[in-house]
Design a binder for these strands. Structure first.
Lengths: 129, 129
DNA sequence: CTGAATCCCTGCCGATACTG
DNA sequence: CAGTATCGGCAGGGATTCAG
């Protein structure tokens, strides 16, 4: 039996802290799972774009209408970044007018619980002063 | 019979999307719970500092030893930021040499599950290409 | 020992203008 | 319609130096 010899049965064997060797990195490396996720969510507007797509697939124009004060350039940046991160799929429709359809990948849909966790902490948190 | 209604309970009644009016904001406002949490976690090294303090209380020097390539200034910045965000408590010890003790607040400890969620997604995620 | 002040450099964000 | 090109402002991060 390859039993773990642990003095504290207290820590959970979830793939997180502190059982995984990656949990002992001493600098912000791109290989750290936490960094990977934060990198995917990085940038202003990013979580709002994901929220829109969690509700339904959207085209570029629909996203622009849903987030009126977001400029074309930044929206384009975010969509490119999220696509490259494997969070979104982009499909250009041939014909006129050209439409580009965006939808979450399975990994993107798995961000739902992550956003929920972020929401829950922020909702419960009452900042001091 | 407080059984969960199966099928499609339409929305989960969790305090998140899309039942809360705050879930309909159309720009990144500081009042959005997700933004609050991301603001607390903002900045390089921040999550690593929190990880250290999730394991045990630490002094400034202990943190510096745990994260050797983190400069004094940035460590100081992070600790000030997290303290102001209500994530950790600072206690200066009188006497010599001066030591400052850092520990997580209850809210700070509640970041554990949040980091776990970030970890889980990043660990499961296999970026394309 | 524990920071604060300063400087420089880089990268993000927004606005505007332009193309397939 | 769905972007790309370019530019400027500004905040973040690192190194160094100074102070309580």
């Amino acid at each position: 039996m390859t039993h773990q010899t642990v003095g504290h049965p207290s820590h959970p064997l979830r793939p997180g802290l502190p059982d995984d060797p990656l949990a002992q990195v001493t600098e912000p490396t791109p290989h750290c799972p936490v960094e990977i996720t934060l990198a995917a969510l990085r940038g202003r507007w990013t979580t709002l774009v994901i929220r829109e797509l969690l509700q339904a697939d959207r085209t570029f124009t629909e996203l622009r209408q849903a987030l009126p004060t977001l400029s074309d350039k930044v929206l384009s940046d975010r969509l490119a970044h999220l696509t490259e991160a494997g969070v979104l799929d982009r499909s250009r429709r041939p014909g006129w007018p050209p439409r580009t359809h965006y939808s979450l990948t399975p990994a993107g849909r798995r961000l739902g619980p992550v956003l929920q966790a972020l929401w829950d902490w922020g909702a419960q948190h009452q900042p001091p002063s």
